[in-house]
Structure formats: structure tokens, C-alpha cells
Design a protein around this nucleic acid. Structure first.
Length: 419
RNA sequence: CGGGGUGUGGUGUAACGGCUAACAUUCUUGUUUUGGGAACAAGCGACUCCGGGUUCGAAUCCCGGCACCCCGACCA
């Protein structure tokens, strides 16, 4: 894509109504637009990142048997009353609205109820199980206070998978697989190293749950990290925990972290309340054992922005970057550079490399600053200075490393780097 | 929801109760520039968040509302 046609513009100054680094950078670089507190729109660059994050999530969920669906946002009051989660005393962050007739509706903040009810149409026999439907969908939570940019919004995207198993044993098997799939997602989006499987409270669902916590000062949670075992314990449940495997409690390090995922064993809490049952091999009726597995793509993007950016701007990991290569041309008086850039641009595009081509009539400094801010993994500079010698300068955004590459080798170099 | 703070062109800021609301940036046009946010010139762009009040006169003072930010509480 040519940058002269991109709808967003970068900004030099940080917006005054944002304090968090993620929102500041994402807004300055033109990835998102703030609609109101805790509510953000995604612009072309931001949506590209979001789509790539979602693709990675789909890849991992499909690999463990997930089937993608899309549930509704509007929620039926009567259904939620059956599980006791309609009342504002129980769930204080409901957004509620009304039909013209006066009937109350809710805007979904999670989807255990509607999906469990829906599954009754499809689950009858032990042969129908297990099933792992998931969706990537907008959730609404009427937070008292939105904060931390896109890390805690009132409207945000969430991937929620629900497992429907025959018994606890089958459930545990999947639960452990889901854990690995989650860690694989965090690895692929570039924050695996600083993300820990964390023992946490199960809230109203269960006694314990597993969270995925990424270490960053921008986080709201306090966790105790055991670096040896690569696991952590959430401060909220530290009481009562004597040790982490073989390590002593005193060896754990206190860290601020952001919860990027959370998985729960739901048992039969919902299948019992909504009567989701199946007939086992002996013809006996049993409740389906459930689990839920949440992960917020938008929060994940915020976390990447928080943890991987530097003083010059965003630094996107290869797998989630909006483009692979930022082609920056430094124009000359007789349009020679333009000709070469156009040639390189179409060559790379033809071979499947995603390129943002900065073809704007601006000075070099300004283009470099913008390029740093946007944070595409590789910067390819086309200027008279270097291509006269048959070489192109390629700079890695993350490390700053510079390589001089021949035109014929550009595509190969990019592919190798992006692998 | 408790406490604190802030609302001025698209963005970031300035303006004692008193001239046509200023500066920078963005944007437009032109000339000169061309490897780290260039220089000059000429322009476009604002009911100073909304509603009341005080005053000869309000961006400025007072009251009410709304929005946004921060701390705390909450976060299934």
C-alpha cells in the first residue's frame, strides 16, 4: 500500500487525554481512534494488526479442535435469570437496553449462558462430545472506570472458547491442551518470554483458574513469578500457597502484570442450571462438563505496544506487524529514485511481501521518524546514495541492525528475516 | 462509586475581567532545499465543552450539567 493513500496521519504530540503508553503510541502512529473513554475504533494499520492477531488465535484454536462460531451481542434476560447472572447486584458491569416493547435486553459481557442453551439443540449423545466452539466477538462491560488505553475498555474484542466434555477427565485433557495453545499464541505474537501461566482465583466460577500474565508495569495485577518453573501466582491467591513445585515461596519475585488470558473449569455449573445433558454409553443421562477460555485480542495488542515499544515508537513482532517491509524512498531531483522504488515495490508485492511504500514528498528525516513510530519490522531505504552502487539499505526496527542488500536478494532477505 | 485535576482551531499550548482570541504543528500555494521531524512567503482553519448567572464588558469570576485524565474501590 502506498502511504500517500493511507487514511491515517501520524502526530508529533501525544494526545492530552491519554496517559498510557499503548494508547499514546497507537493514536500517534494512526492505528486507532479514541471514540470515548474505553472505546476505540481501529484504523487501517490497527485493523491489519488485529486481523493478524486473530489469525494466529484461530490457527491455535483450530489446531486443538476449536470450531469458530459467532454468537449474538443482544442477550435474553430470561436466560440469564436461570443462572442467576442477570441482576445488577451479581454482575455490576452489565450494559442493558430495551426493546420498543419495553422488554429488557443485555449486551453480552461473556457467553456461557447463550452458548450452553444453544448446545442443547446439538448435544444428545456421548457421541456428540467433546465440542469446542469459539468466537471472536465484541464484548461490552460497563466498567466503573476505563483505563490504560485499550487494555481495559468498555467495548472490546474477545476470543472466547467453551469446552463441552463428557467428564472431568476428558475436560482436563483439553484444559491442558488449551494451556499449551495459549502459550503458543503468546509466543507467536511476540510476548511469550514475559508471559506466565498464573494460578489465580476462579471468581464466581470455581476455586481456582489459570491466568496468563504478561509482565509489565502497565499491568493492574500483582503476581509472584517463579522464573525457574516459568509460572506465577496471582497475589489474590498467594495466601495458602506454600510453595511453587520445588521452589520456596521466598524465591518468588513480585511483579506487575497484565492478564492477557484466563481459562476456567466450569464443571457443571452452567449445564446443570440450563439442563444441558447427554446420554452416556449405558443410556444414563449426565450433565456436560464445561470450561471457558478467554483471551482479548485488543488487550493483547495493547500489551505488545506497552512491552515492545521503545523511545522512537512501536516495534511490531514479525507475525503481527501491519506490513512486513516499510519501503522508504528518499526522492531525488530527476525521479530516478521513484522509478527504482516503484520497481522494487511491485517486485516485493508480486512475491507476497506486504509492503507499505512511503511515496510521500517529504524530507528524509520526517519519513524516518514516521517509520520508527509505525514500527514495521524491516525498513528498506531507496535513495540515490546507495542504489548507484547496486545496493539497498535494510534496517531492522527492533535491533537497529543495518544490512546492505542487492536488488535480486531483497525478497529472499525479507523472507528469511520474517520467518 | 469516593477523592483530586482538566476542558481554547484537526493536534499541542498561550492569553491581567478589556483591541479582530495568540503561538506552534497539521493542511493549501509558491520559491529554495533534500539521509533523521528544513527555510522563507502567502493562505485555510475557533460560536473558547453545554446551559444559566455576575458585569458596561467573560476564554477568564460564580452556579449547574456533561466530557476527559489520575488515585482508590470494582474487574465473574
Amino acid at each position: 500500500m502506498k502511504q500517500s493513500q493511507l487514511l491515517s496521519k501520524t502526530r508529533k504530540e501525544a494526545p492530552k487525554d491519554e496517559a498510557s503508553k499503548n494508547a499514546e503510541l497507537l493514536i500517534r502512529a494512526g492505528f486507532i481512534h479514541k471514540e470515548m473513554a474505553g472505546v476505540y475504533s481501529f484504523l487501517p494499520l490497527g485493523l491489519r494488526v488485529l486481523n493478524r492477531v486473530n489469525d494466529i488465535i484461530r490457527e491455535e484454536m483450530n489446531a486443538i479442535g476449536g470450531q469458530e462460531i459467532l454468537l449474538t451481542t443482544l442477550q435474553d434476560r430470561e436466560l440469564w435469570e436461570k443462572t442467576g447472572r442477570w441482576s445488577d447486584e451479581v454482575v455490576d458491569n452489565w450494559f442493558k437496553t430495551k426493546l420498543k416493547s419495553g422488554t429488557e435486553l443485555g449486551l453480552g459481557f461473556t457467553h456461557e449462558e447463550p452458548l450452553t442453551a444453544l448446545m442443547k439443540n446439538h448435544v444428545r449423545s456421548f457421541r456428540d462430545l467433546p465440542l469446542y466452539p469459539y468466537q471472536i466477538q465484541t464484548k461490552f462491560r460497563n466498567e466503573m472506570r476505563a483505563k490504560s488505553g485499550i487494555m481495559r475498555g468498555r467495548e472490546f474484542l474477545m476470543k472466547d472458547l467453551y469446552s463441552f466434555s463428557r467428564d472431568e477427565k476428558e475436560h482436563s485433557l483439553f484444559y491442558e491442551k488449551a494451556k499449551l495453545a495459549y502459550m503458543s499464541i503468546f509466543d507467536k505474537v511476540g510476548i511469550g518470554e514475559m508471559t506466565y501461566i498464573t494460578s489465580a482465583s476462579g471468581g464466581t466460577f470455581s476455586k481456582y483458574s489459570d491466568e496468563f500474565q504478561t509482565i509489565t508495569d502497565a499491568g493492574e495485577d500483582t503476581v509472584y513469578v517463579c522464573e525457574g518453573c516459568k509460572i506465577a501466582i496471582n497475589g489474590e491467591v498467594l495466601e495458602g500457597k506454600k510453595e511453587c513445585h520445588n521452589c520456596r515461596l521466598s524465591d518468588l519475585k513480585e511483579r506487575k502484570a497484565v492478564e492477557v488470558g484466563n481459562i476456567f473449569n466450569l464443571g457443571i455449573r452452567f449445564s446443570e442450571a440450563l439442563n444441558l445433558t447427554y446420554l452416556d454409553e449405558e443410556g444414563k443421562e449426565k450433565f456436560v462438563v464445561m470450561g471457558s477460555y478467554g483471551l482479548g485480542p485488543t488487550r493483547l495488542i495493547g500489551t505488545i505496544a506497552e512491552t515492545l515499544s521503545d523511545k522512537d515508537g512501536l516495534v511490531w513482532p514479525k507475525r503481527v506487524a501491519p506490513f512486513d517491509v516499510h519501503l522508504v524512498e528518499i526522492s531525488d531531483e530527476n525521479n530516478e529514485v521513484r522509478k527504482v522504488s516503484e520497481r522494487v515495490y511491485s517486485m516485493l508485492k508480486k512475491r507476497g511481501v506486504e509492503v507499505l511504500f512511503d511515496d510521500r514528498e517529504l524530507r528524509a528525516g520526517e519519513k524516518f521518524k514516521d517509520s520508527d513510530l509505525i514500527g514495521i519490522p524491516l525498513r528498506l531505504i531507496v535513495s540515490k546514495k546507495t542504489f548507484d552502487g547496486g545496493l539497498f539499505e535494510v534496517k531492522e526496527r527492533a535491533s537497529g541492525k543495518i544490512s546492505m542488500i542487492k536488488e535480486d536478494d531483497l525478497c529472499g532477505f525479507a523472507r528469511d528475516y520474517l520467518k
